[in-house]
């Protein structure tokens, strides 16, 4: 029981990841899909950041009287990953807007069917 609880951060990650992935799989609405994707990515960010936490460690800013710092590298990495995630979200939402203009709907459910043609 203790081990399960002591890994609670990973459980949160797993649960968030599953919810996000389920959204991507099961939701037809494109905005919801993008949100699911965000959730999915965020779970990974938490994974990185929580791994960088050292018990008893302080925020990784150099100051007087503090010896033990958390690992700063994951934060830096995740800052970059967040930027990437934001960009992805932006592109995804922009595409959603364009799809709404072109099709009049953002339900991914059989959107392509109305175009006659070569999808088999």
């Amino acid at each position: 029981m203790m081990t399960v609880l002591s890994f609670f951060n990973y459980w949160i990650v797993v649960v968030l990841m599953m919810i996000g992935f389920y959204c991507v799989i099961a939701r037809g609405n494109m905005v919801k899909k993008v949100m699911g994707l965000n959730l999915f990515q965020t779970s990974v960010f938490i994974l990185f950041i929580s791994a960088g936490k050292i018990v008893g460690g302080s925020t990784p800013i150099v100051r007087e009287g503090v010896e033990l710092y958390s690992n700063p590298l994951p934060h830096v990495l995740i800052l970059t990953a967040i930027v990437v995630g934001v960009a992805t979200t932006a592109v995804g939402l922009a595409l959603t807007v364009r799809i709404n203009e072109a099709y009049g709907s953002i339900e991914d459910d059989h959107l392509g069917d109305e175009d006659d043609g070569d999808e088999q």
């Binding site: 799989i25 099961a26 392509g112």
Partner: peptide, 13 residues
Amino acid sequence: GKLAKSWPIGSMA
């Protein structure tokens, strides 16, 4: 939501 329905992205994922 119905998981078993085959959404394009859904089935890919």
